[in-house]
Design a protein around this nucleic acid. Structure first.
Lengths: 113, 113
DNA sequence: TATACCAGTATACTAAAGTATACCGGTATA
DNA sequence: TATACCGGTATACTTTAGTATACTGGTATA
């Protein structure tokens, strides 16, 4: 049994990550972008159920935290492309861990039926 | 570049996990319990900033999803102890990944100052 | 000519998360 | 006798997350 202080120290970095990727949509968006750069409407289709308002807001948050890059191309009309930054790509270990656990969890749920 | 369908399949298990551990408090609570069984008031201190109302609600959610166990001991007055279930313990890989990334993120933030 | 695509914004709303503060009855401690 | 601990609950509130629906102006397509 370790000290309470040690435990609090341990929690801190996790809280920092949660501040950035918390919520229903941010990780799904990042995963979608890990499959390739996407335009707004493509994301809207691939992140099932998200509304344009939420997508717009979440993309802004992710860009602010430098996890994704928004590129505007000078076409007519302008086209906008979203991509993962290198920093965003470094979240893949987190996503892998979540995904592995999620798959186990699904199996557990189905096994019960 | 993979298919959109493949991407959506990839997202699904992650959304399942998020349904269970989403929010500001659940992971901190689980981490605290990973350091040893705790009583209600102990958790209230160790998960800094949480109010008893939120703690109570989150503990109920976590218990419902079988990630933690609530044991009531027949003392006078009764004492209540919370512990991680085996299933809850299996989240350690997720927590490790989050923690590692969080530590890197902190370093990045401090490096900027 | 009508329709659809693009990258969102506008408005209005509901639901959930989270905060603040006070309180309970019973027990143990000072 | 006063205070603090225990495991919470009660009430009231604010903030954030999320939903629903409609719309924009310019372009390309049928």
């Amino acid at each position: 049994m370790k000290s309470s202080r040690e435990c609090i120290e341990y929690i801190r970095p996790v809280r920092d990550v949660l501040d950035i990727i918390n919520g229903k949509w941010k990780l799904p968006i990042l995963i979608s972008l890990s499959f390739g750069n996407k335009r707004f409407k493509e994301l809207e289709k691939e992140v099932e159920g998200i509304t344009p308002k939420m997508l717009s807001k979440e993309l802004r948050d992710l860009e602010m935290n430098q996890l994704i890059i928004r590129s505007v191309y000078d076409t007519v009309p302008v086209s906008v492309e979203y991509s993962l930054s290198e920093y965003g790509k470094s979240l893949d270990s987190v996503i892998d861990a979540l995904r592995e656990w999620g798959k186990k969890h699904r199996n557990k749920l189905f096994a019960k039926l």
